[in-house]
């Protein structure tokens, strides 16, 4: 089911007319959708427009079937929003605050109390809920912010940088929680981050924004597909890596150092198959287009070559690893300028 749809959405701020969003057309479905972009890419602007807090300069959008123009109230009733910045009054107890926010979203008093307790348990604030939020750690504050976005049982939640300021352990907890909301709770999630690696792990679909424009919108799987390239690591004398690299090059493989490893491009051109393999290897959508059997055969041949080369040079082969795509590659590939 499509929960968010935008058509040629454009927002320009002020007299400078710099576009914060430029002709953006996206669709967001069920599950967890990551909205990725550097700071200033237009993520927060998009969320504010979707909530009806900002009017777009042109274009249209609908959230849960409600048009953003004229149905702001219905949208805000059905959506839970967790802003990026601090938004908790320090002199309130967490439970009172979440109950109050539930009331503000249209819950009657008794259900608001019941759901607030429920939701605080889900986000892991059951023990601390009677404390004033001024004394909360950053991790607890993020949880409280998430609880207020869920208290009215929204049909969609928009989370703006939920892992901001968290240490690695708390970050993992938060990401696991976001994933639970999207999958176990069954609430579609739109989550923003400027850290691509995070969204790699939890989202089903990724929308990449750059300078207000849509860079890519695809299932996360296709970003992370096997590229056919291989990373290897060898041991031996001091110059083992260099010797190995030269030997591989002598066998007609294109390779380059990659930190302490050697990255070898896929063997596709050498393959006598009918599949029209692209020489630069299939990244993103192209990877899926590769003929499965031919690709497997190519992988095997490449690995055999690596093994033989290492044996010839009398080097120890420590690691042969498939090089999968990373979301970072999206930027490396498509934003060279």
């Amino acid at each position: 089911m499509t929960v968010i749809q935008t058509t040629a959405l454009t927002k320009r701020y002020g007299s400078a007319q710099v576009p914060a969003l430029d002709d953006l057309s996206i669709e967001v479905d069920d599950g967890v959708t990551g909205l990725v972009g550097a700071n200033g890419a237009g993520k927060s602007t998009l969320i504010k427009i979707l909530l009806g807090l900002l009017a777009p300069t042109s274009g249209s959008a609908s959230v849960l079937g409600h048009d953003i123009e004229g149905s702001g109230e219905q949208i805000r009733r059905a959506v839970g929003y967790m802003p990026e910045h601090d938004c908790l009054p320090p002199d309130m107890r967490c439970i009172d605050f979440v109950v109050h926010m539930g009331r503000m979203s249209g819950l009657p008093p008794a259900p608001a109390r019941e759901r607030a307790a429920d939701v605080l348990r889900h986000v892991g604030l059951a023990e601390e809920r009677y404390r004033l939020m001024g004394g909360y750690s950053t991790g607890m504050k993020q949880r409280a912010k998430l609880a207020q976005a869920l208290v009215h049982d929204p049909e969609l939640v928009m989370l703006d940088e939920p892992t901001n300021g968290l240490d690695p352990a708390a970050r993992d907890d938060m990401l696991a929680l976001v994933q639970r909301i999207g999958h176990d709770f069954g609430i579609p999630v739109l989550v923003t981050s400027h850290l691509l690696g995070e969204l790699e792990r939890i989202s089903d679909h990724v929308v990449v924004l750059d300078g207000g424009r849509l860079l890519r919108s695809e299932a996360t799987r296709s970003f992370l597909a096997d590229t056919g390239a291989v990373l290897i690591e060898v041991t031996g004398e001091a110059d083992a890596q260099r010797r190995m690299g030269e030997a591989l090059a002598a066998r007609g493989l294109s390779c380059r150092p990659h930190g302490g490893l050697i990255e070898i491009d896929p063997l596709a051109p050498a393959l006598p198959t009918e599949a029209g393999d692209t020489p630069e290897g299939g990244r993103g959508p192209d990877a899926g287009a590769l003929d499965g059997e031919a690709a497997a055969a190519a992988h095997d041949r490449l690995r055999d070559l690596v093994r033989d080369t290492a044996a010839d040079l009398d080097l120890g082969l420590v690691r042969v690893q498939a090089r999968t795509g990373r979301l970072e590659d999206v930027f490396r590939d498509e934003v060279p300028a």
């Binding site: 807090l53 805000r76 009733r77 959506v79 929003y81 938004c87 926010m101 503000m104 207020q148």
Partner: peptide, 12 residues
Amino acid sequence: SGVISLYLARPL
């Protein structure tokens, strides 16, 4: 405290 952004993201 920024609570205003939560209020404004609600129906009123």
